[in-house]
Design a protein around this nucleic acid. Structure first.
Length: 937
RNA sequence: GCCUAGGUGGCGGAAUUGGUAGACGCGCACGACUCAAAAUCGUGUGUCUUCGGGCGUGUGGGUUCGAUUCCCACCCUGGGUACCA
């Protein structure tokens, strides 16, 4: 064999490992570049060809930047806490640690074969206690923080305590739950019924430690609270909003119900505005930014209080259209709204209770699927219009969500379609407050509509009415302008085994933070990985487990805890004194290029931004956005093949004739199909049920399959794994081919049959360096003008394409270059040596091998990226396409130094011009030097 | 519905600032080498054609000497999201 890739790749992978070629340290005198891949969860299935796509692309950039003189940090690790290992443990009793180790070993083996430039000395695993010690430590920092809204940043809880000591709550503007004070256990405090969360310094000092801790818990950024959570009975745990898709759990698709539980939460809502603003400063793709914007869900409007008739209470609503307040004809509360039971009159109590119970039983999915079924129930209570004093009936309805705004709406049926439908269904009045607008069929939601019957707002539309009504609300004292965010705080406890334990112990009911020197709080051993019989989390099975002699917290942290800060740990992975040394964090700074899937838009990518902002506020890092630029690789889809079995028989008919029979379409393993032609003998051996299959073939005597593009999955038999391809074609070919498929961000089908194209390219390259008998042969003659032109054109192409992250066009650039050099029969060092450097980020093994054969002693990874010389690329003449009225008619070779006027003269003088003019007059001639000539006639 | 990315040969795709549409690769066809096959190499390959040329980048319009590229309207596909008040 001429190009013996298996030997070459084995040799260089070994040598890189022996020489620690990819180990990096901080170097003050060179610029840094941080290239990061989203670290994988090591699943049992191993890698398929879709996984390495992003890794290869980022590896190429890492190698390229290194050749360009950057000190490149390019690490890899494992997000190794997670459900699959735990579920496997539940089924088999095998410790998740074992499963995880086995899977990691397999991943590592697969990754190594592809020849990545990772600094494996920096590997991190989120399930290692030396890693999660610092996840716990960061949790402690968040626990010990509150959010000062005036400064728009987090501060240490001690600054709050100092303020309480000095002035009580006076002047404190903190991010907290609305009405937080109502959730304090009243029996433990001396506050009267008038208490609205304000207290004096004297009050504070008179509180005992337990009382103070109970108060502080309502300020902390990581806090324990009774909250309505998404409880997933099948998984036995609570889930965050982003872990639920279409009303069922993202993992497993199990139903999720609403349940009030005592849980840790993260006060991410405090950062809503900064998370939104920060998006403007980072170079991410617009659709991901948009998903985050929607998730944050900022909307401007007003909060308005409606007094309740006959009650010492009011309903607070948030509305984006306070200008339509004179169109309110009823109010709707979410069935879960806390006022419901209080205000319901005896007359309606039974039906209200029935409605509330029914709503409780519905899952999120049921509620969503019943969009068309409007339901609701009158409570018997009335609210009072803040301006007119009119009595407004109060209804409950499950189209109002407890989790958005205040869980109550002022219904303006003439201006909102849902309110309109509700009013129609229950025959409620629909007063029209728009001038010259017909609302007999549907609501008028346009912001341009002109208001009428609206007192001070008459004649205004939304834009001008807003400031007036907000000022009016404030004057009367029943409301104010407000910005509302959809984003809720993130539930942070999971009732699972395989996750980070909390660095928390309990003194009575009071949670206390474990001191730094007692970290990590290690995951205890348990006999089984299931929840206890009493429904407590699996950690409660560790009967003897104590933290600092006290009762520990039996919950674990969610999957996103460890992944929210791993990019920082890579900077200083073995530090046992800090999560990372500040000087190293300052050196490596933000991730310059982050590569990964777009599916983490509202999970990992939001939470790591959140944690980064907290760490920034607390003074541990010097930047508040983690990932400066991000590229999301598209999914690689599988190409699956089908065969057609004639119903009720074991006969298979070729695709051309399938319509002649009644057939059943079946998937067939793509490995026994070549170019859509089935290997019928292999098919018989593939599965026992096909052993005596018979075939109806086409005219050529072949069995043709049809194909489809599906996700890669074992059940479509269309999975290709990288190991097989490395075996068959080599890692360099695989790397090149994955890049050649198309733009990295685009989803595209995987089709193994075209891989031989890039494989042939590498063999052609090899032959440039070798004679017919595969002897290395290279010439030291100086290169010709043509050869230099090809080289410099290629340097320019590859450099510019890499700078704009266009990997696929680089590969065709290499092919063009090698084709040209082959035509020129070029085997000159002056040309081939720089070419190898250009190719080395893409196909490092063959590049190293040929580089060494050229007599270089150091690895090609240390070579300097060649620069291009425009003068070497210049042609003496250019073949001008001459077009007439935009249609190209003939070509005219002219000197490149000719001016526009000279080119025009040459075109006028050419005898072909007259022919294409067909007797018409030349009106104008447009000349773009070295591009085109257009004759306008 | 809304947001977002896209629509170019048989297939994957290229065309960076408005300047020769289809680079590069696959596939296909023919040829060379071979007893033969594989591999390799070479030639051709958008489409129609009366061989002059005509038509061609989802559709219809517009701007321009010139539009895959810019503008307007619409259609289709992928991804995301939704009783959000």
């Amino acid at each position: 064999m001429d190009y013996n890739f298996s030997e070459i790749e084995r040799k260089w992978q070994q040598r890189w490992q022996d020489n620690e070629t990819y180990a990096v340290t901080e170097k003050a005198d060179s610029p840094k570049y941080y290239v990061l891949d989203m670290f994988p969860y090591p699943s049992g299935a191993g890698l398929h060809v879709g996984h390495p796509l992003g890794y290869i692309a980022s590896d190429i950039i890492a190698r390229y930047k290194r050749n360009r003189g950057f000190n490149v940090l390019h690490p890899m690790g494992y997000d190794s806490f997670g459900l699959p290992a735990e579920q496997y443990a539940i089924q088999t009793g095998q410790h998740p640690e074992i499963t995880t180790q086995t899977n990691i070993a397999r991943y590592r083996q697969q990754l190594d074969r592809i020849g990545f430039a990772y600094d494996w000395n920096r590997e991190v695993r989120t399930s290692d206690s030396e890693y999660y010690q610092w996840t716990q430590w960061i949790f402690g920092q968040i626990f010990n923080a509150w959010f000062n809204k005036d400064a728009n940043r987090a501060e240490h809880i001690n600054t709050l305590v100092e303020r309480f000591k000095a002035n009580g709550t006076y002047g404190v503007n903190a991010a907290q739950d609305a009405n937080w004070h109502e959730n304090l256990p009243k029996e433990k405090f001396f506050f009267g019924s008038h208490f609205e969360g304000e207290f004096t310094a004297t009050d504070w000092k008179s509180m005992n430690d337990e009382q103070q801790q109970l108060i502080l818990m309502h300020y902390r950024l990581a806090y324990l609270a009774d909250s309505v959570v998404n409880w997933c009975p099948a998984l036995g745990t609570v889930l965050a909003n982003d872990e639920i898709k279409d009303g069922v759990s993202e993992r497993g698709g199990h139903p999720v119900e609403q349940k009030k539980m005592r849980q840790w939460s993260m006060r991410i809502s405090a950062y809503a505005e900064r998370l939104l603003q920060g998006l403007e400063t980072i170079d991410w793709n617009e659709s991901i930014k948009e998903v985050q914007r929607n998730w944050i869900g900022r909307s401007e409007g007003a909060s308005v209080q409606f007094a309740l008739d006959g009650h010492d209470a009011h309903i607070e609503v948030f509305t984006t259209r306070p200008d339509t307040i004179f169109g309110v004809s009823f109010m709707t509360l979410a069935p879960e709204h806390e006022l419901v039971s209080r205000i319901t009159t005896d007359e309606y109590r039974d039906s209200v209770n029935a409605y509330v119970e029914a709503a409780k039983l519905k899952t999120e999915r049921d509620r969503q699927s019943e969009v068309k079924n409007i339901s609701g129930q009158f409570t018997g209570a009335y609210a009072l219009h803040p301006f007119t004093g009119d009595k407004i009936p109060v209804w409950i309805g499950d189209y109002v969500l407890a989790g958005y705004g205040t869980g109550a709406v002022m219904a303006v049926p003439c201006g909102d379609q849902r309110d309109y439908d509700f009013a129609k269904k229950f025959a409620l009045p629909i007063p029209n407050i728009f001038r010259d607008t017909d609302i007999s069929e549907k609501a008028e939601a346009s912001k341009d509509a002109v208001l009428a019957q609206s007192h001070m707002l008459d004649g205004h539309s939304y834009k001008t009415a807003m400031p007036i009504i907000i000022a009016e609300l404030e004057k009367v004292g029943v409301g104010k302008g407000k910005i509302n965010y959809r984003m809720r705080d993130a539930v942070f406890s999971r009732q699972r085994y395989w996750g980070e334990p909390f660095p928390i112990y309990y003194e009575g009911e009071i949670p206390r933070l474990v001191s730094d020197d007692a970290l990590p709080v290690e995951l205890p051993e348990v006999d089984k990985y299931l929840p206890t019989e009493s429904g407590e989390p699996p950690l409660a099975r560790a009967n003897a487990w104590r933290v600092g002699g006290h009762k520990p917290d039996f919950n674990t942290m969610p999957g996103w805890a460890g992944s929210s800060w791993y990019f920082l740990r890579y900077m200083d992975p073995r530090n046992s004194n800090a999560f990372a040394d500040r000087s190293k964090i300052d050196y490596w700074n933000q991730v310059d290029l982050y590569m990964g899937g777009a599916e983490h838009a509202t999970g990992h990518l939001l939470y790591s931004r959140f944690w980064t902002k907290i760490l920034f506020d607390m003074g541990y890092i010097g930047f508040d956005e983690p990932f400066k630029k991000m590229i999301n690789q598209g999914m690689i889809l599988g190409r699956s093949n089908h065969v057609y079995r004639i119903m009720g028989t074991n006969r298979f008919v070729t695709a051309e004739r399938k319509d002649e029979f009644e057939t059943q379409q079946l998937y067939v393993d793509i490995h026994i199909v070549d170019n859509d032609v089935l290997d019928t003998e292999a098919f018989k051996k593939w599965l026992p049920e096909y052993a005596d299959a018979e075939f109806i073939l086409n005219e050529k005597g072949q069995y043709t399959c049809t194909y489809a593009i599906d996700k890669m999955s074992k059940r479509w038999f269309n999975v290709d794994n990288p190991d097989e391809l490395c075996e068959k074609y080599g890692a360099d070919t695989l790397r090149l081919y994955e890049m050649f498929l198309g733009p990295v961000e685009q989803s595209k089908p995987w089709d193994t049959k075209s891989i031989n194209g890039v494989h042939n390219f590498l063999r052609k390259l090899w032959r440039l360096f070798h004679d017919h008998d595969n002897n290395f042969q290279i010439s030291d003659e100086s290169a010709s003008k043509e050869e230099l032109k090809t080289l410099h054109k290629t340097i320019k192409k590859i450099t510019e394409d890499l700078d704009r992250y266009s990997w696929n066009t680089c590969v065709s650039g290499f092919m063009i270059c090698v084709n040209e050099l082959q035509d020129l029969k070029c085997s000159k060092r002056e040309v081939l040596e720089p070419l190898l450097i250009l190719l080395s980020p893409f196909s490092p093994h063959i590049a190293e091998e040929l580089w060494e054969k050229l007599g270089n002693e150091h690895s090609i990874t240390q070579a300097t990226w060649p620069s291009f010389d425009e003068s070497k690329m210049k042609d003496d003449s250019f073949d001008y396409p001459v077009s007439f009225n935009g249609k190209t008619r003939y070509f005219l070779p002219l000197g490149v130094e000719l001016s526009g006027a000279e080119v025009e003269a040459a075109v006028r003088a050419n005898e072909q011009t007259a022919r294409y003019l067909e007797g018409k007059e030349i009106k104008k001639i447009i000349v773009v030097p070295k591009r085109i000539v257009n004759v306008v006639a």
